[in-house]
Amino acid sequence: MPEDTHGVDRRRLLSRLGGDFQLDAARRVARSMSRDVATVLVFLEINRANVAALTASREPIAEPHAGVPGLPPDHMREPVSIYLAARNLGMPYETTRRHVKKLTQVGMCETVPGGVIIPARAFLDPRLMAVAAENWAATVEFVQAAGRLGVSDSGLRQPASPDQFRQVNRAVSAYCLETACHMSRVMDLEPLAVLILRAVNLANVRNLTQDPDAALAHAGLADILPDAERRPISVYGLAKYLLLPYETVRRSLLQLEAKGLVRRDKGGLIVPAEVVARPAVVAGIAELVALTEILLSDLAAAGLAYQPDS
């Protein structure tokens, strides 16, 4: 997406749409596994590493598992060490190890020679299959919402492949991971703190994405909503939204407050406009937009693009 689309800079708008999409996808997976969003990030990172060599190609997976197109069987999955998964996530080793243990206890992760894998049978769990269907519907709506607001990659649309469903879900999983890890590096924060910070900011400005006119009026990188117009969110509301223990959220917020990234305002928490306007944050948002553009391009290449008449 160019900086100026039909005369309007839509980069901050696309960042908000992508942020809501990312967090909602993570929440759906967390609910299905009865785990928090930090565990979901570890789950996604292990699976990404397991199938990275396979997904580098757009060719359909020739050997499906249990008759499911695009689902590689265990012997095709490359194990990853907990150390490497932690490094890729920017998460402490012990924290990552605890999340791996949680996943292993519920059969969502398995230790094999060379490291750990997310076994193919995990994706056949009815709960995860239901989430995959929900993510598909949410992805279609995300593409349509972006298109209606002037952001579209329809020209790159290709015919759907035999494993389109899995290709789309893999692209969405990669996006959720990459955006979290990217902001973790930009803000020098652990991924969980990044998700909490992003959730606060999105809650502050969610009214903009729900109103098309307001969305377009605050669409560009320079269009920052002033503090007086931000809608605060409580610690309890934040914990409930992210499916995290209250104390976990409270401790992370204390760290974010100490760094000046979050402020307690009347009615709850806000990310001040001053923070959103910092050059490093603006540059990070521009790079998040680039990742969102890549997602839209990948979805179009998989056969899923904006259809104006839908």
Rank of each mutant, 00 (worst) to 15 (best):
M1G: 13
M1P: 07
M1V: 10
V8L: 15
R10T: 04
R11V: 05
R12F: 13
R12K: 09
L17S: 04
G18Y: 03
D24G: 08
A25G: 11
R28S: 12
V29Y: 03
R31K: 12
S32I: 02
M33T: 02
S34V: 10
R35M: 14
V37I: 15
V40G: 00
F43T: 00
L44S: 11
I46N: 00
N47V: 07
A49F: 08
V51P: 00
A53V: 03
A53M: 08
A53L: 09
T55D: 12
E59T: 15
E59A: 15
I61F: 08
V68L: 10
V68D: 06
P69V: 06
P73W: 03
H75C: 02
M76Y: 06
M76R: 12
R77Q: 14
S81L: 09
L84V: 11
R87E: 13
N88W: 11
G90N: 06
P92Q: 10
Y93W: 13
E94T: 13
T96Q: 03
H99K: 10
K101C: 03
M108V: 02
C109A: 15
P113A: 10
P113R: 12
G115F: 01
P119C: 04
R121W: 08
L124D: 04
D125F: 00
P126Q: 02
P126N: 03
V131H: 00
N135D: 11
N135G: 12
W136G: 07
W136F: 15
A138Q: 10
V140D: 04
G147F: 00
R148K: 06
G150C: 02
V151F: 02
S152I: 00
G155A: 15
P159K: 05
P162F: 11
Q164P: 02
Q164R: 14
V168Y: 01
R170Y: 14
S173L: 11
A174V: 12
E178D: 14
T179H: 09
A180V: 12
S184V: 09
R185N: 10
V186E: 04
V186N: 02
M187S: 13
L189N: 07
E190P: 06
A193N: 13
A193L: 11
A193I: 03
A193W: 03
V194A: 08
L195V: 09
L195Q: 12
I196Q: 06
N204H: 01
R206A: 09
L208T: 02
D211Y: 04
P212H: 06
H218N: 14
D223C: 08
L225E: 07
P226E: 07
I233F: 01
S234T: 14
S234A: 10
A239F: 01
P245N: 09
P245V: 05
Y246S: 05
V249M: 07
R250F: 05
L254P: 00
E257A: 13
K259T: 03
G268R: 07
V275C: 13
V281M: 13
G284H: 12
A286H: 07
A286F: 04
A286I: 05
E287P: 08
L288I: 11
A290Y: 06
E293V: 09
L295W: 08
S297K: 12
S297A: 15
S297D: 15
S297F: 02
A300N: 11
G303L: 09
G303Q: 04
A305P: 03
Y306V: 05
Y306S: 07
Q307W: 10
